[in-house]
Design a binder for these strands. Structure first.
Length: 467
DNA sequence: AGGCATTGTCATCCT
DNA sequence: GGAGGATGACAATGC
């Protein structure tokens, strides 16, 4: 049993079912290109504002769809019939209470807005899209779902959405939201392992150590072993991190700056706590043939904990290993003990008749010397990791701020669209009359589209298929 | 005198 | 199994 409500409409509303049925069927004359012109002929209750109404089919679909549109996590979805339509309670002004139990936090700072509910640093669109899908997938709202071949939105609603990039279709939106996140994150990947391979031999500065046999200690004392630093300079040289700091030339044996502290003042701020340049500026204490020079003041001491004690011309007390080496009369310099390759070191030992105490001391000196360099390298890497992480942290903070601003802007645009939607809805409903000339109340009816592409005026709390 | 930074050393694990 | 690198922890030293 059908009855035409008003045949004067460009499209007719027909009532399918009982006369008092809540279902009104949008007529066959509506096509995607027809204008939805609610003219004065609709009913006798003509209102001047009705002449302003002039929408396309797509716009009406957009209106219907917009009712479902919510900012994720702001309005948690609750299953129920026509849930997506229910929020439209009042229409007509931007000040009305539309859908949002949690109004957009327009006065909230971006950072606060982010902190409030945006723990994950992802695009708002990425967060939004899954919920859009959820709305559509709700089984109790079949008629609210646009058909797969629903025409794309057209102006003017299209233009309304442009500022917030909402003009994509659902699929397009999804495509947009699922766009390559690397586009935004490509420059901020945390990579702790990306530090320069400072520990690799390739980064060592060749020739930073120059072994200078002199005085009573000649090359012959090594029993034919050539200067290891000349043989394999890269294997005998401590890793030179000063390259990264740009303050060490890498080829000077004697102190370049008379005051190492002064030299350190030129180190960038973040590197202030980096190990000092002592190792590079005073690298050669091990070059001294201690057994022969221990009794004389040395221009450069060995392993003084504080580089400031090594200023030019200032002698310093011997280190523990130096004193032990002197005491046990180790017949070769500590530099060779530490820096010789293992084969050369073993050969060196084999050429000298050392007692157990001497052998133990030499091996301890070698172990400590190796470990000292390793500790320096380790600390340097640790500092560089800190610098790297600070840089990454700065990037992530900037990105968080950007996303917070983007989210706030999105919420503002959504609020504006809802205001516009409510206005359009009010205009539309103000011109619709039933066959008795009574208006359709927005509180009682909502506009929806069925799977067959027709528009329906549905009475709330009823379903097209749920009869 | 105590805090802090630097450096060396030891212990331990791993390759 | 020894050598050596990596690293946390501790101590010594100077400011």
């Amino acid at each position: 049993m059908c009855s035409t409500i008003n045949n004067a409409l460009p499209f007719s509303f027909r009532c399918e079912g009982p006369v008092n049925s809540n279902r009104l069927h949008g007529g066959v004359s509506m096509s995607s290109t027809h204008r939805f012109s609610a003219s004065a002929r609709v009913c006798s209750n003509y209102s001047p504002q009705q002449s302003e109404m002039d929408w396309t089919w797509q716009e009406l679909m957009a209106i219907t769809e917009l009712q479902e549109f919510e900012v994720p996590n702001e309005n948690p979805f609750e299953a129920g019939p026509y849930h997506s339509m229910e929020p439209v309670v009042h229409y007509g002004s931007c000040g009305m209470n539309l859908v949002e139990p949690n109004p957009p936090t327009c006065q909230t700072s971006p950072a606060a807005a982010f902190e409030a509910g945006y723990a994950d640093a992802i695009s708002p669109y990425q967060r939004l899209n899954p919920n859009v899908e959820m709305h559509y997938g709700h089984g109790g709202c079949q008629v609210t779902r646009l058909p797969p071949n629903a025409p794309p939105l057209q102006p003017p609603l299209m233009s309304l959405m442009d500022p917030m990039n909402m003009t994509n279709t659902n699929q397009g939106q999804r495509k947009h939201c699922n766009g390559n996140p690397d586009d935004l994150e490509s420059d901020s990947g945390l990579s702790l392992g990306s530090s320069p391979p400072l520990a690799s031999p390739e980064n060592e500065v060749h020739g930073a150590i120059t072994y200078l046999p002199r005085d009573g200690y000649t090359e012959g004392d090594t029993d034919g072993i050539e200067d290891p630093c000349q043989m394999r300079p890269n294997m005998n040289t401590p890793m030179d991190y000063s390259q990264a700091f740009g303050s060490y030339s890498g080829h000077s044996y004697l102190p370049v700056a008379p005051n190492p502290q002064h030299a350190q003042q030129h180190v960038p701020h973040l590197h202030q706590h980096a190990p000092s340049m002592k190792q590079q500026l005073f690298p050669a204490t091990l070059h001294e043939p201690l057994v022969y020079h221990a009794s004389t003041p040395r221009a450069v001491s060995f392993d003084s904990p504080n580089p400031k004690t090594k200023e030019a011309g200032v002698s310093s007390p011997l280190t523990r290993d130096e004193r032990r080496a002197v005491a046990l009369q180790i017949p070769f310099p500590l530099e060779k003990i530490v820096n010789l390759p293992v084969d050369d070191f073993n050969e060196l030992l084999s050429r000298h008749a050392l007692n157990d105490a001497q052998l133990t001391l030499v091996r301890d000196i070698r172990r400590r010397g190796k470990n000292k360099v390793a500790a320096q390298n380790c600390r340097k890497r640790k500092l560089e990791n800190i610098v790297h992480l600070e840089h990454e942290l700065g990037q992530l903070r900037a990105r968080r701020e950007h996303l917070a601003r983007e989210r706030l802007e999105f919420q503002q645009n959504l609020t504006m669209l809802k205001c516009r939607l409510s206005e359009l809805y009010a205009k539309l409903f103000s011109q619709l009359r039933d066959e008795e000339g009574h208006p359709f109340s927005l509180e009682d009816y909502s506009l929806q589209q069925s799977n067959d592409g027709n528009l329906y005026l549905l009475q709330r709390n009823n379903s097209l298929d749920g009869e």
